[in-house]
């Protein structure tokens, strides 16, 4: 391993891997940093199919889609540092400097001419959508429930209420049902579901799971472990309508209420946050106008609903980052 690279990619999800491949193809020296013990990002836990329909015209599962990219990364001889955590990222003159840590290497430094941020996103939690009532165990975000079931083989509950009709929530409704749990229903505060229609069809309708639109969870009940939720209808201004409350017994509440780009590592750089997407402002080459040489792609840029477009954004960022590094060298 060197300690200077043309392009350093942070995050080895589909966006990061695609950008690394493109930058490598264009002749740059590339290093990928990944904090998990393996590349693939969120795809590793998305064992359902529906990935790659646009790009490969195939119906792959998440891990299969990831596997394809990991093979290409191997073939291209691109280095990935897994189980490595970025502690600090600053720009010094015309170079990026970072401090990282891993159990294997301890604290160490790297320098890069260009940096691609492909750190994905995180889920909104119960506190961020202001759920009230008790604070028992048994409240999960959909992604967390997905990790428990798919990666670790544990059940978050046996009788679930799902709040929010995002795709991950819908997919988890099916997954829980297949694993023998009961799903009491999916509650969505808006008058229309936020997930794809095909997921309503194949995840809910196939298993007769009810979708309640214009209804939300108003209160959580249960001291130790969750025992029930109170649900209520809302008016056009999203205020609860008195008299429409109902108590739904359950032993877990799963939230699928939105994703937020994960860009905390950029806190020491003068990037501008895009109020709408939650990511940073970039030009159409995915570069930050405030921090030349800094590129952002995938869900760290804005939340995409299809991985195919995530990979595409990675290719754009990788290509531009490679060009930037080449110009910087001259």
């Amino acid at each position: 391993m060197k300690n200077v690279y043309d392009v350093i990619v942070i995050g080895a999800g589909p966006a990061g891997m695609a950008s690394a491949l493109t930058a490598r193809e264009k002749g740059s020296s590339v290093l990928i940093i990944e904090r998990e013990d393996r590349p693939g990002g969120i795809l590793n836990q998305c064992i359902h199919d529906g990935f790659g329909l646009v790009k490969f015209n195939e119906k792959l599962t998440g891990p299969e889609y990831a596997d394809r990219y990991v093979r290409w990364i191997d073939e291209a001889g691109i280095e990935i540092l897994t189980s490595t955590f970025l502690l600090e990222l600053i720009k010094d003159e015309d170079e990026f400097r970072m401090k990282l840590v891993s159990a294997e290497k301890g604290v160490f430094s790297l320098r890069g001419k260009a940096v691609v941020v492909s750190t994905g996103c995180r889920e909104r939690s119960d506190r961020q959508i202001f759920i009230h009532g008790d604070r028992p165990a048994g409240i999960f975000t959909a992604g967390q429930a997905q990790a428990f079931i798919n990666r670790m083989g544990y059940m978050p509950g046996r009788r679930a209420v799902i709040l929010g009709s995002g795709d991950i929530g819908l997919i988890m409704a099916r997954r829980l049902t297949l694993e023998g749990a009961e799903v009491e229903g999916v509650y969505e505060i808006q008058s229309r579901p936020s997930g794809l229609q095909r997921n309503i069809s194949q995840c809910l309708n196939d298993f007769s799971i009810p979708l309640h639109l214009g209804r939300t969870v108003s209160r959580v009940i249960g001291k130790g472990r969750i025992e029930a939720v109170e649900v209520v209808s809302v008016d056009e201004r999203m205020n609860p309508v008195k008299g429409t409350e109902a108590i739904v017994p359950c032993d877990c509440l799963i939230l699928s209420v939105g994703l937020i780009p994960e860009i905390d590592i950029l806190k020491d750089l003068p990037v501008v946050k895009d109020g709408k997407t939650g990511g940073i402002v970039t030009d159409d080459r995915m570069e930050s106008p405030q921090v030349p040489g800094l590129f952002s792609c995938g869900n760290a840029h804005h939340v995409y609903d299809l991985v195919d477009y995530v990979s595409e954004s990675g290719e754009i960022a990788g290509s531009a980052a490679s060009e930037f590094a080449r110009e910087a060298a001259i």
């Binding site: 165990a137 079931i149 544990y154 059940m155 472990r225």
Partner: peptide, 9 residues
């Protein structure tokens, strides 16, 4: 009274 998980899948 507050186990996180409800059992094995």
């Amino acid at each position: 009274s507050s186990p996180v998980l409800s059992g094995e899948a």
